[in-house]
Design a protein around this nucleic acid. Structure first.
Lengths: 254, 254
DNA sequence: CGATAGCTTGAGTCTTATCAACGTATGTGG
DNA sequence: CCACATACGTTGATAAGACTCAAGCTATCG
C-alpha cells in the first residue's frame, strides 16, 4: 500500500511510475485482495506471466466499451474507475466504482461481451487479464479457479447488498451506507478508513445512488451538522463511525 | 417442459412425482439452461452422479437459512422459490425469485456461508449440488468450469440490470419490467410467455421491488386500463407485449 | 361456515425530485 | 499570472410520486 500511496501522491517521478507499471504479482501490495490469494509461489509466477500491465490510464480514459468482445478482465492496481451504461437518451448510468484489488468486467463472461463502459476517474494502473488464458490457467490451478469463483460470488453478494440498500433505505441511509462502504474498502486495503479522498464527484454519487445531486449536497450538510462526518472539497473525515453506521440502518440479517 | 407442466398441474399422481424425482441430468428437460450445457454425455453422467435429488419441497418449506455453512448449491427443477434476508426488525426482504433451471446459493461461495434464506413458493423440485464435489468436478471438466463461471457472470448481469431498474425507473416502469422479465424467463423455458401464473403474491412483488402493495395493486389496474395486460387471480395475460416493453422504458445501453 | 391471508380503494402526508439561481473550484489560453 | 470558461457544489421554493393509514372486499382453506 506504500507503493499505492506513492502513486497517488502527485509528486511521484515518471521513473517511479515506470517501476510501478512493472511490478509483478509476487510483489504487488494488493495481491492478497486479488487473484493470487492462496496460490503457491510457482503458481503466482504462472499467473503473473499472463498479466499484461498497461500504461497508466488518465482521468476519463476508457478501458472498454459496452458491446465490445471480452478480451480481458481488469484488476485495478491503483486509482479508481467507474463502470456505466447509457440509457435510451444517452445519459450515463453508473453501475459501479472500482478500487485497487477489485476486478472489472466479470459480467462480460456470460456472453463474452462487455455489458458496460469502464472509465478512469483518476490516474489509474490496471492489470489486464486475458480471459481465455485466465480460463485455461484456472483449469490448471485449483486455487485460482476457487479464487475466481469466490471473487464472483463476492460480487454477487455486494450486488445483493446494494440492491437491499437501494430498495429499502431512504436517501440519508443510502448516502451514509455508501460512505461506510467506501471506508471499509479503504480499510481492507490498509489505508486510512476515517479520512480519505472521495474519488468521485457528488454528481457521480448521486447518479450511482439514484438520487438528485441537490439531495446529496443537503445530506452531506446534514451529516456534518450531526457531527458524523466532515467534507472539505473531496476529503471526507468520518467523525463518528459508530453513529454513522447506526444511521445507515444497521444492516442486520438474522 | 412437458414434465414440468405435468408437475405443476395439481392432479399429478404420486407415482408420477416419484418418477420426476429420479430424472437424471441426461433426460432433464431444462438441462440446457442448467450446468450440463455444452458437456459431453460422459461428463453429464459424471455430474449426474454427484447430484442429490431431494423430495419435493412444499410451499413455505425452507431449503437453507442465513448463516448456515454452504453445503450445496440448488438447481431448481420445477416450481418457484424465493431468497430473502431479515432486516433489523425481523422483516423479510426478498432478494430473488428462482425458476426452473436457475441456481440458488451462488452468493454463499465467497465465505462458505449462506447469505440468505431460501423458501419454496410452491411445490418445488430441486437438485442439490454438493459444492465441494462440484468444485472438484469443475477442475476436471473444463466445460463445467466454464459453465459455472458463465452462470455466475449471468447472475451478476441480472443483478446489475435490476440495480438500474430500481435506481432509475419509477413504480410503473418497475412493475412492467418485472412482468416482462418473468415473461422472458418463461419463454426461455419453452413455456407460454404471454399467459402464465404469477408464482408469488403481490405482497412479495411489492417487497422485491421496494414498493407498497397498494401501489402494485393500483398499477396492475392501470396497466389493465391501458390494455397492456390482464390479471385474474394469479393468472397474468399480456395483451400488448410491445407496448408493455415500451412502457417499461426500453432499457437501451448503447 | 368462519377465519385469515391477500387484494382493492380512497384520503392525506411526506420524502425527494425538479427548477432556478447563485457560489465556488479548476484549469486553459492569452 | 490573470481572466474567463466551465464543471462542480449549494440553497431555496415548489411539485409530484409513492407511502401510510384506514377500511372494505374476496379468495382460500381447514
Amino acid at each position: 500500500m506504500v507503493l499505492v500511496d506513492k502513486l497517488r501522491s502527485t509528486d511521484c517521478k515518471p521513473t517511479k511510475l515506470m517501476d510501478l507499471e512493472q511490478i509483478k504479482c509476487q510483489s504487488c501490495s494488493i495481491s492478497r485482495l486479488c487473484l493470487p490469494v492462496m496460490l503457491a509461489d510457482a503458481e503466482i509466477e504462472h499467473l503473473d506471466s499472463i498479466v499484461k500491465r498497461r500504461k497508466p490510464y488518465q482521468k476519463d480514459d476508457v478501458l472498454f466499451r459496452f458491446g465490445e468482445p471480452l478480451q480481458s478482465l481488469y484488476a485495478v492496481r491503483s486509482g479508481c474507475l467507474k463502470t456505466y451504461t447509457l440509457d435510451a437518451d444517452g445519459i450515463e448510468q453508473i453501475t459501479g466504482f472500482y478500487l485497487p484489488g477489485e476486478i472489472i468486467g466479470l459480467d462480460a463472461i456470460a456472453n463474452n461481451t462487455h455489458q458496460s463502459f469502464a472509465k478512469a476517474l483518476d490516474t489509474s494502473l490496471v492489470c489486464a487479464l486475458p480471459y481465455n488464458k485466465l480460463d485455461i490457467l484456472a483449469g490448471q490451478i485449483p486455487g485460482l479457479r476457487s479464487q475466481l469463483l469466490k471473487i464472483m460470488s463476492s460480487e454477487i453478494q455486494d450486488d445483493k447488498a446494494l440492491f437491499l440498500l437501494l430498495n429499502k433505505k431512504n436517501a440519508e441511509q443510502r448516502l451514509a451506507a455508501f460512505v461506510i462502504n467506501l471506508s471499509r474498502r479503504y480499510a481492507n486495503r490498509g489505508l486510512a478508513s476515517d479520512r480519505f479522498q472521495l474519488p468521485m464527484t457528488q454528481v457521480d454519487i448521486a447518479n450511482y445512488l439514484g438520487m438528485a445531486v441537490e439531495t446529496i449536497s443537503r445530506l452531506f450538510k446534514k451529516l456534518h451538522k450531526l457531527d458524523l462526518l466532515e467534507l472539505k472539497q473531496k476529503e471526507i473525515n468520518i467523525l463518528n463511525m459508530q453513529q454513522l453506521s447506526h444511521f445507515a440502518g444497521t444492516s442486520c440479517h438474522v
